[in-house]
Simulated scan of single mutants.
Amino acid sequence: MPSNQSPLGALPARFRRMRVLIIGCGDVGMRAARQLGAAGAAAAGSPAARPRVSLSALTSSMDRRAPLRGQGIQPLLGNLDDEATLRRLAGVFHRVLYLAPPPGEGETGARWWRDRRSESVVRALRLRALPDALVYVSTTGVYGDCEGATVSESRPVAPATPRAHRRVNAERAMRHLGRVGTRVSVLRVPGIYGLDREGGTPVARLQRGTPVLAAQDDVYTNHIQADDLAAACLAALWRGRPQRVYNVGDRSDLKMGDYFDLAADLFGMPRPPRVARDAATQQLPVSLLSFMSESRRLDTTRMHDELRVVLRYPTVREGLSGLSMRDENHSA
């Protein structure tokens, strides 16, 4: 493509500024922003460095402006539930990282299965020149219950909960955008954890003594540490293939009860009680039972081979211990 047709214009590479937008800039978004800034600083002066990045984040809260600016992020006021405020997104950004969740479980009516937020964003982005790339962060819940099978991205979706149905709808909306020129990548993500993430460890649940399923009834669960997820998001933003789905997860191969047992041992806490599934239906809320009704293991070959993601925390043992394999390798 001739330089004057590039969305970055005909300027020399050192003067170009890549405009990146984060939609849903919470914990993972802030981690991605910090990693993006660190990567840019590390690559300064390198002829092969990425273009300089101008980073923005959509927010509906005036109170979020100062914290965002403090991290070098330009706040952009807009509300995902008010489509008119999203028109300013059109024709501005070269790459978009979409981390915002669909509407909550209270959505009812004929459109309960649709994610109106993602549909509104897609319509706004199509008003003018499309972004070059968009990464949508979805959930592995779209696969439904796989009875413990290993799941690749080619497996048909089978959502079993309202939130999973909305994620499928959002994925389809984003991939429609891909059909008109944007390189769209979809990341299907399991449980996110992190020692420095609010609610990012099982400590509170272990303190409550919430039961887990007995071994014969237990389900396989999957995990990703929050910094590793942020790294995967950025890898997809630059290296994701068009219209490609990627499973994102670590190498842990644990059932849910074993995960909580491991966490309890690492934190020096009592292991949770085990109960049969019939008893669990009487003791646990429906929202928690839904996670205990789906069992699957993720095939993350694409993430490693195509996105070239190197996990800092390859299993939950390292992640919950705060033991970074990258730091260990550097000190070896």
Results as ranks from 00 to 15, higher is better:
17 R>D: 10
161 T>W: 00
71 Q>R: 15
164 A>T: 03
76 L>I: 14
89 L>D: 05
324 S>P: 12
197 R>I: 08
41 A>H: 09
55 L>W: 08
220 Y>S: 02
73 I>V: 15
84 A>D: 12
117 R>A: 13
202 P>K: 01
12 P>V: 09
267 F>Q: 05
129 A>V: 11
232 A>F: 00
133 A>T: 12
34 R>D: 15
241 R>N: 03
226 A>S: 14
231 A>H: 02
36 L>T: 10
139 T>E: 02
150 T>M: 06
52 R>P: 11
87 R>S: 15
67 P>N: 07
150 T>L: 11
37 G>Q: 13
193 Y>W: 02
92 V>I: 13
91 G>L: 03
120 S>A: 15
13 A>G: 01
289 L>E: 09
257 G>Y: 03
325 M>R: 13
297 R>T: 09
112 W>F: 13
251 R>S: 15
261 D>T: 13
315 T>G: 04
260 F>Q: 01
307 L>Q: 03
60 S>P: 04
166 R>A: 01
282 Q>I: 02
66 A>E: 14
325 M>P: 00
46 S>A: 14
324 S>G: 11
260 F>N: 02
299 D>R: 04
291 F>C: 06
121 V>K: 06
181 G>C: 09
187 L>K: 06
133 A>F: 02
71 Q>T: 11
107 E>W: 00
311 L>N: 01
153 E>N: 01
210 T>L: 11
25 C>P: 09
316 V>L: 05
193 Y>D: 04
35 Q>N: 07
164 A>N: 03
118 S>L: 15
236 A>E: 05
111 R>N: 15
206 L>A: 05
283 Q>N: 04
174 M>P: 00
94 H>S: 05
89 L>G: 08
152 S>L: 05
248 V>C: 10
160 A>T: 09
45 G>D: 08
264 A>I: 09
102 P>N: 07
22 I>T: 10
301 T>L: 06
172 R>I: 00
277 R>W: 14
219 V>L: 00
182 T>Q: 02
263 A>R: 02
105 E>C: 04
43 A>Q: 14
194 G>L: 04
50 R>P: 13
40 G>K: 00
175 R>C: 12
234 L>G: 07
214 A>W: 00
43 A>C: 07
30 M>G: 08
88 R>M: 10
197 R>S: 08
58 L>C: 11
173 A>S: 14
77 L>T: 11
323 L>Q: 13
81 D>E: 15
144 G>P: 02
115 D>E: 11
174 M>W: 15
88 R>V: 15
300 T>F: 01
7 P>N: 05
136 Y>C: 10
57 A>S: 08
210 T>V: 14
240 G>E: 09
296 R>F: 03
324 S>H: 11
154 S>C: 07
145 D>A: 05
326 R>M: 13
29 G>S: 09
145 D>P: 03
83 E>R: 13
108 T>L: 12
87 R>M: 12
306 E>Q: 12
269 M>F: 04
319 G>E: 06
194 G>V: 07
45 G>Q: 10
326 R>F: 14
164 A>G: 02
150 T>C: 07
127 L>N: 08
253 D>L: 12
106 G>V: 11
270 P>Y: 09
100 A>H: 03
